[in-house]
Design a protein around this nucleic acid. Structure first.
Lengths: 193, 193
DNA sequence: GAGATTCCATACGCAACAGTATTGAACGAG
DNA sequence: CTCGTTCAATACTGTTGCGTATGGAATCTC
């Protein structure tokens, strides 16, 4: 009668990566404050005893989790775009890619809300630097002079950061079509001609 | 010998407004998490006993403080701009006004980092709504059609929000001249002709 | 100057969470 | 079968901050 072997239990034991994933989920849903050991443990169906075997401290978990995000984001967003030859099309594609709410952008927004935290500030500084440079290069290749390209990249990136935050309160209240038109206008404004 | 009367004590007693000011200072410096009763009390040189005489709860303090900010911001930023007749000049002036780090924008940035909190989200929703409408109206008066005006206002406001956040990590690392040029480009991009 | 009012101090209780220490169960290797 | 390794449960300690209860001191009022 009792088939012990084919239990539907997903995984009675956890590994460090499980904690990192849970941390990123909690981060995306409720911010860095929710990346707390005991709540995560409850969520994972274990207790703190498990956590402190895998990680020495809460900071170590956050460190590992955001590194995982950073790698993933680089592979999923930046790398594919770098392959697009035409710089104008590259920027258009970037804006389209980043304008739809996907996990990585939700996490990005949550990180920005925790910008005061010691680990997060430097992370976002590095990430922003890279991204602005990435866009600046595209604008340069598209024919803008150095300063104009830099300014336009700053503007685009600022608008992205702001938009992601505003989405969080559903503020630019738009229908799907309005949104598509907004993105088109956005692109048209920044990359005329 | 002992002149008790001419003590240099600034104010042995506090009023509710003192707590609200302290709350806004802490908010600007270290975020909403720093608007905690005991730390504020230490800072003001009193104890919690004082606080709970003036306010029933922490939430009440936050409520009062952000209302004070909202009023002040409306009077200091929006009202003066509403008097500018030329809509293009009005937007230019708005961008210039909001592009220099002043207390009210620092607080605004801090509020955005606390957007998850129950009192703050709705506040920012209202504020953002008002501001986007304000800018939309200006663009309409400047001759843009309804949809373009709305989109451009969203873009401008998003860029403002993002820029304010990025300033917090000193990310668009610019000299003063570069910054001025950036603002000029910003205006030129959004309000051509 | 007696009493009420206003403001603050002190001392609690309470909850959440970080981190530690110890014990215990499962499991593979010898 | 035994032992060591891996992972988790339990039971602590310590800290921080919210909120309460109560009493004390200054100040105003009659």
């Amino acid at each position: 009668m009792a088939r012990k072997i084919t239990k539907p239990e997903p995984k009675p034991r956890l590994c460090a990566a499980d904690w990192e994933h849970a941390a990123l989920e909690a981060l995306a849903e409720s911010g860095l404050g929710a990346v707390a050991i005991e709540p995560l443990a409850r969520r994972l169906g274990v207790t703190k005893g498990s956590f402190y075997w895998h990680f020495p401290t809460r900071e170590a978990l956050i460190q590992a989790a955001i590194q995982r995000w950073e790698r993933n984001d680089e592979e999923q967003v930046i790398a594919p775009l770098a392959k697009v030859a035409d710089p104008r099309e590259r920027v258009r594609e970037l804006i389209r890619l980043t304008s739809h709410r996907r996990p990585t952008h939700t996490i990005f927004a949550a990180l920005f809300r925790a910008i005061d935290q010691p680990l997060i500030g430097p992370l976002l500084e590095r990430a922003s630097q890279r991204r602005i440079e990435f866009v600046t290069r595209a604008f340069r290749e598209a024919g803008f002079d150095a300063k104009t390209a830099a300014n336009r990249a700053r503007l685009a990136y600022s608008a992205y950061v702001g938009f992601v935050q505003l989405s969080h309160i559903g503020q630019p209240r738009m229908t799907h079509d309005e949104f598509e038109r907004y993105i088109d206008d956005f692109i048209e404004t920044l990359i005329p001609r």
